[in-house]
């Protein structure tokens, strides 16, 4: 009798073991979906709807493998630069041509004639409006990574993330001076650029602005390198620049207002010419999580053109 009880006990336990195994193996229950260590950004990504003053009017895909730079030219044509070429679109998104080259267009700008100045990672190449290579400027440094380029009537300004410097060239590619390096006498704090987003632009055709992302500030320089003014505040809140280093890109409306884009909390916003927060163009919910490199351009009608490298789209926002 005792023996029987022992056998039955042993067998029952063995059967329990087997049942546990089989049930666990073939159960269709999902893995635990709770992350006790979740990083919660969603609260910060919430935006007040009434602050959003723009609507997405149009979006279209580009054909380039990787896209990195956008610019807007005569007739509000849109130019997209990226790996191995530049694509051209009409203002309504219809393809209007393209041209190719070896290499990777990390930045892009046009002069009045329509010639392209293209930052090819470590040097600048100049192309005719038809896409013919006109001139190849000297390489700057093997560490260089040209993240932004702007053309005024007489000068070409280039932002180099790798060397953390801004260069002023003439249209022929002769270096005139370097701007923005740390200089206590001129009260220049120096650029802090932790990640490869370093933008510059020209306002009213003479004011050079550079995004000093690590300091979360927009800085205005004279052509000789004196810093005239700066504004900007580090904050996750909607009126500041979030994360380690923002804004990643910016552009100007015709009244001199700043259009800025950020990574981390993906958002496009407008600041007044003096740097006061005005409104939201596109809230974080408009972008795929993790999108970075939202290059910006503005056309003659103040439409805001956003390059979305994650969705490989050009997205155009207009005022409500």
């Amino acid at each position: 009798m005792k023996q029987k009880i022992f056998i039955i006990a042993g067998l029952v336990l063995l059967v329990i073991v087997i049942v546990i195994m089989v049930r666990d193996l073939f159960s269709s229950k999902k893995e635990d979906q709770k992350n006790p260590y979740d990083y919660k950004l969603n609260e910060l990504k919430k935006t007040a709807g009434k602050q959003i003053a723009y609507n997405e009017a149009l979006s279209f895909r580009t054909g380039l493998e990787e896209i990195h730079a956008i610019a807007c030219g005569a007739g509000d044509r849109i130019f997209v630069g990226g790996s191995k070429g530049v694509e051209i679109f009409e203002k309504d998104g219809k393809p209007a041509g393209k041209f190719g080259f070896e290499g990777f267009a990390s930045s892009l700008a046009m002069d009045k004639k329509g010639d392209f100045f293209i930052g090819m990672q470590d040097h600048v190449e100049v192309y005719s409006p038809e896409g013919k290579l006109l001139k190849k400027w000297n390489g700057i440094s093997p560490e260089s990574f040209l993240t932004s380029i702007a053309v005024s009537d007489s000068f070409v300004f280039v932002a180099d993330y790798g060397k953390r410097a801004v260069y002023r060239y003439d249209h022929e590619g002769r270096l005139i001076n370097r701007i923005g390096e740390k200089d206590p006498e001129k009260k220049v704090p120096g650029f802090i650029v932790p990640s490869p987003y370093f933008d510059l632009a020209i306002r009213y055709n003479h004011e050079l602005w550079v995004a000093n992302t690590g300091r979360h500030s927009m800085e205005q320089f004279s052509y000789d390198g004196t810093m005239n003014s700066a504004w900007g505040e580090a904050s996750m809140a909607i009126d500041g620049f979030c994360g380690c280093c923002n804004p990643s890109h910016f552009a100007f409306l015709h009244d001199g207002s700043f259009v800025t884009s950020e990574k981390g909390i993906e958002r496009v916003k407008i600041y007044s010419p003096k740097g006061e927060f005005k409104c939201i163009v596109a809230p974080p919910s408009a972008f795929t999580e993790g999108t970075r490199g939202l290059d910006l351009a503005v056309d003659s009608r103040d439409r805001i053109i956003v390059l979305d490298p994650e969705r490989k789209q050009v997205r155009i926002f207009v005022k409500k």
Partner: peptide, 21 residues
């Protein structure tokens, strides 16, 4: 727990894993 049940069963059924698994 799983190990415990198997070992407990092994008190009465010698080497249950070796023989039956």
């Amino acid at each position: 727990l799983f190990t415990g049940i198997l070992l407990l069963s092994g008190v009465f059924i010698a080497r249950p894993y070796c023989r039956f698994l």
